[in-house]
Simulated scan of single mutants.
Amino acid sequence: MTLADLPESKTEPDGSAVVRLLSYNIRSMRDDTAALARVIRACAPDVVCVQEAPRFFRWRKYASRLAHATDLTYVTGGATASGPMILASLRAYVEHTEDVLLPLTPGLHRRGLATAVLRFGPSARLSVVSCHLSLRSEERYAQAGLLLDRLPHPGTPHSVVAGDLNERPEGRSFRRLTDTLRDAWVSKPWGEEFTSTPDRPHQRIDAVFASDGVEVLGCGVPAGLPGVSDQDLRAATDHLPVLAALRVPPHPV
């Protein structure tokens, strides 16, 4: 699969939907926000799982600005999930949202989950979780378990988890997730692998995971994608984004 071959969004005659999902740590929009918006728009996502969304003073204003600049809508998260946030195109019908605050370890940053059930077309339902796990190994492992406890959502058996894991694939928290979910990069690699850092990509600590039944059509860092310049990727934030194309089957009403 070449960079130009990532499938575009569409709804199939059988009711299944091809969905483009982007996972992106945006470092509270402290870098070049114009470059950030260009990268997101060029990826043409249906869903964006954001990590490190603005979460302090007037955070809703900044979330709204990012949504407007990228032709997306705010779905859930931000300060209410302690950083993770979900944006979506008008193609997605929002059926359910919930922001989850995870247990706080004294002295450490509070973590949370932004979750939503989105419908594409008449019946292709997808449970989406945006996460940003702890820097501390023990807490990170526990958070991975708490995340898995929320799957599957009662509204659909089909789930995707996307986020900054603060851990490489060989780590035990990463492996805890792949014991239940499929690592989309491993299932169908596309683009580049490493997500950190933009100036010297050398590790994959950001990932997309899919449940059984969700077909991965391609997943990776969109370096070289038309409209995504290396300069913008370096300027937008301190992580590289992960873009996945997923086929979500129809779910009986």
Rank of each mutant, 00 (worst) to 15 (best):
L181R: 01
C219W: 05
P7F: 00
D238Q: 09
V94R: 11
I86E: 04
P250S: 12
Q143E: 11
P7I: 05
E170N: 08
P198A: 11
Y62T: 05
Q143D: 14
L135T: 14
H251A: 05
P222S: 01
G224A: 14
D238I: 00
L240E: 03
K61S: 15
V94L: 08
L21T: 05
Y141L: 15
R182F: 01
A124C: 00
G83L: 00
T115V: 08
A144H: 02
R55N: 04
Y62N: 11
V186E: 10
P7W: 07
G171Q: 01
R204G: 06
A184R: 04
D199E: 14
V47T: 05
H202N: 15
W59P: 05
R175C: 02
V208L: 04
L66R: 03
Q51T: 15
P250M: 08
E12N: 13
D31P: 05
E98Y: 13
T237R: 10
G107H: 10
P154F: 00
V100L: 00
K188S: 14
P252Q: 09
L90N: 11
A210T: 13
S137K: 15
H239S: 09
Y24M: 00
L147E: 08
M85L: 11
A184V: 02
A114N: 06
L147N: 04
V128S: 01
T80C: 01
A69Q: 15
D32I: 14
V128I: 11
R168M: 11
M29E: 07
D71C: 14
R150W: 05
H239N: 09
L135H: 14
I26A: 15
R150T: 09
V18Y: 00
H239M: 04
E8N: 14
T180K: 08
S16I: 02
L217Y: 09
I86Y: 01
L104G: 00
L102C: 09
I86N: 05
